[in-house]
């Protein structure tokens, strides 16, 4: 039992809080779902409190909400341009969802839903499919020319095209893996070092200090990975809209 609790991977276990079954299908409300609900509630509160008064001179909350707005709007403006405005709500939601998931995971005893590959992969796949659909809707079949960069001699096509196809289909995988791996590794590492604190006795101060430092680092990573996920989405969207 004790060994079980010290297993650094225990924190990632999915536990059904409210079992819901539809025939064979499992839609149980799990700890992951609980934290998704909390994250969405907090994000909604953050955006609602921030904009409730809508005063001319923003207060603290309004300022924070406006900074997040400007931050994502700036990302889209710099990476996609004017045409990206349409996708602002989705990209903003994506940023908020990942950011709040990452940050919520920093609370002790909480659950980090972004540390699950299925969640990050679902988000990445949605972005990938969406961006591909947007590309074909905007350019039609010529969007396939994306796989053959301009200026490359035609005889290079047998080499270039498979590489481009591979690199294109690797995008959702790398997008999903990056976030999942960062979150999982960070939280596992914290847990491992935290485990040493108790077992090393007085010397436990050393891993304790390390855990304190790593916690700070994890906060940075939580923000940075949300940023990276969002900016890569912007870059892919730009590729689809403007083809390189």
């Amino acid at each position: 039992m004790a060994a079980e609790q010290h297993n650094p991977l225990t924190q990632f276990e999915i536990k059904a809080l409210v079992p819901i079954q539809f025939g064979q299908l499992d839609f149980s409300f799990t700890n992951s779902a609980l934290f998704m609900v909390i994250a969405v509630t907090l994000a909604t509160a953050f955006l609602t409190i921030g904009t409730r008064r809508g005063s001319l001179v923003p207060g603290r909350w309004q300022s924070m909400a406006e900074i997040s707005y400007e931050f994502v709007a700036g990302m889209i403006r710099d990476n996609v341009g004017q045409e990206g405005r349409k996708y602002f709500p989705f990209i903003f939601t994506l940023f908020m969802f990942v950011l709040f998931g990452n940050l919520l995971g920093m609370l002790p005893y909480s659950f980090t839903y972004t540390s699950h590959i299925i969640v990050t992969f679902a988000l990445a796949a949605f972005v990938f499919v969406g961006v591909t659909v947007i590309g074909f809707m905007k350019h039609g079949l010529p969007f396939l020319k994306f796989l053959m960069p301009t200026g490359v001699p035609i005889y290079m096509a047998p080499l270039i095209v498979p590489i481009e196809i591979l690199s294109y289909f690797t995008r959702p995988v790398s997008l999903a893996l990056r976030l999942f791996a960062n979150m999982t590794a960070g939280h596992t590492m914290l847990k491992v070092f935290a485990g040493f604190v108790a077992t090393l006795g007085v010397l436990g101060v050393v891993p304790l200090a390390l855990v304190a430092a790593l916690t700070g680092l994890e906060f940075i990573i939580a923000f940075l990975q949300a940023y990276v996920f969002t900016i890569l989405t912007c870059v892919y969207l730009n590729d689809a809209l403007h083809m390189h």
């Binding site: 999915i14 059904a16 819901i20 499992d26 839609f27 149980s28 409300f29 799990t30 992951s32 779902a33 998704m36 609900v37 994250a39 969405v40 994000a43 909604t44 955006l47 609602t48 709500p89 989705f90 903003f92 939601t93 908020m96 969802f97 839903y113 699950h116 299925i118 969640v119 679902a122 988000l123």
Partner: peptide
């Protein structure tokens, strides 16, 4: 269950945003 709740919560946040 993760995918289901991800879809639900993400959609809620998207509508709010």
């Amino acid at each position: 269950p993760q995918l289901f709740w991800l879809t639900v919560t993400f959609a809620c946040l998207f509508v709010v945003v």
